[in-house]
């Protein structure tokens, strides 16, 4: 009995190993199953989903206008302090003082892409972009100013 069980153990073990080897051979013989994406080469065809959270950007229209009122809602919503609103007062046509942004400083190196600032923004001034290649040699290059130089607030945005 002992001998039979001994030999049966060997047989079972061998079969289980052979099944595993059959599976790896299956993939060895089928190059079609290869799933590697050759990343830098396929950059042009790379399609990121529209909701992908790459970085915070502020869209400007062709007249170099944005929608940011400088209300600081995004700054308050951010868990890490990645956004800083530096504001100034502008004199409007009616001669009133009006709060507006001087700079919207964005610390990409602190950002966790949690989307809270976009949710918080009352005037849809900022959104998430699909860029993802953020590596730079110097950390200070990750500090970005979102509004373009010389830009001003769009008409009708309160």
């Amino acid at each position: 009995m002992g001998v039979i069980r001994y030999l049966r153990d060997i047989w079972r073990g061998a079969v289980s190993l052979a099944r595993g080897m059959r599976r790896t051979l299956y993939y060895f013989l089928r190059p079609k199953e290869i799933i590697t994406q050759q990343y830098p080469d396929n950059r042009l065809t790379l399609n990121l989903p529209e909701r992908f959270k790459g970085e915070v950007v502020m869209p400007h229209n062709e007249n170099n206008e944005h929608r940011c009122t400088g209300c600081q809602a995004c700054e308050l919503a951010c868990p890490n302090g990645s956004l800083k609103v530096i504001y100034k007062y502008e004199i409007t046509a009616e001669g009133k003082k009006k709060k507006a942004i001087d700079k919207l400083v964005y610390h990409l190196e602190l950002c966790t892409m949690c989307n809270l600032c976009i949710e918080a923004c009352p005037s849809d001034a900022i959104k998430m972009a699909q860029t993802f290649e953020h590596s730079v040699f110097d950390r200070s290059q990750l500090i970005k100013i979102l509004n373009k130089p010389g830009s001003k607030i769009m008409e009708g945005v309160e």
């Binding site: 993939y27 290869i34 050759q38």
Partner: peptide, 13 residues
């Protein structure tokens, strides 16, 4: 190359 093919990837290329 053998390992790459078995692991459904390309290997050195």
């Amino acid at each position: 190359k053998v390992s790459a093919r078995m692991q459904v990837r390309l290997g050195p290329n």
